[in-house]
């Protein structure tokens, strides 16, 4: 069953032109899909359109059969959708623990949030060590962990992650994708946007290729990985590098 459905969505920023020119896609429940494509294709915009951070000018967005089109971000969150933005969007002056606390803002009840925070710290020992550190003093990788840990607390139905590997060293990127695989193992539905197409597809079930605001290809992640045309266009002709290209 499809948890997330986008039906011919057109979206853009403010009074600017359409970035998404009629995108339709579905993400099956408990599966992980990765959106890849060149710069300016509108990948991040897809996630923002779902989250209500961008004007949806046409088409419909629905999660679990419930219509999300045109709703505010806090309303979309209430439907069980969690967004981890490209810039991580942390609270720089708050500590790790306070950031997690803020994530629990929408959970309302204090005690429930506290329990989840402790759970999250257990699940992310890297953060537990630094629980009293201000977020702006964390390294890029640690910040990304914190951003993902916030999602962990909310246990969303649908997790949207925008370019998790952005600005991170390869070693750290691996750790980040390990976390995403953990979400996947929990049965969460994940929609991922990645510039690093290879790594993104390697931890996904399905791949969606976007270009110029439209869907170009869609299919099983490993078939996208090996599709010659896609490879040439978006992955670049590459020889096998050490450690890369192997199955997850």
């Amino acid at each position: 069953m499809a948890l997330l459905e986008l039906d011919d969505v057109r979206a853009g920023y403010g009074s600017g032109p359409d970035i998404l020119n009629g995108v339709s896609l579905q993400v099956q429940e408990s599966s992980t899909s990765c959106v890849i494509g060149p710069n300016g294709a509108g990948k991040s915009t897809v996630l923002k359109a779902i989250m209500g951070l961008v004007d949806v000018r046409g088409g419909e967005v629905s999660v679990g059969g419930e219509r999300l089109t045109g709703q505010r971000p806090d309303q979309v969150l209430a439907h069980g959708v969690c967004f981890v933005p490209q810039d991580r969007s942390l609270f720089p002056e708050m500590t790790v623990r306070e950031n997690l606390s803020m994530a629990g803002y929408s959970l309302g009840r204090r005690r429930k949030a506290e329990a989840r925070i402790d759970e999250a710290l257990d699940a992310f020992p890297v953060l537990a060590e630094r629980r009293s550190q201000r977020a702006r003093t964390l390294s890029g990788g640690q910040q990304q962990m914190l951003a993902l840990a916030r999602a962990w607390i909310l246990k969303p139905r649908l997790l949207l992650v925008d370019e998790p590997s952005m600005g991170l060293a390869p070693q750290v990127t691996k750790q980040v994708f390990d976390v995403i695989r953990r979400f996947r193992a929990l049965g969460m539905t994940v929609l991922l946007v990645e510039q690093n197409a290879r790594q993104g597809l390697e931890c996904s079930d399905r791949g969606i290729v976007l270009d110029l605001g439209r869907k170009r290809f869609e299919g099983a992640a490993d078939s996208i990985l090996t599709h010659p045309e896609v490879r040439e266009l978006y992955l670049g002709k590459q020889r096998e590098r050490h450690g890369n290209g192997a199955a997850p």
């Binding site: 981890v84 933005p85 810039d87 609270f91 803020m102 929408s106």
Partner: peptide, 15 residues
Amino acid sequence: ATMQNRGAAQVVGVN
């Protein structure tokens, strides 16, 4: 939270 990072506040569910 909004004073520190408006975008982040939105993302954690602040109206």
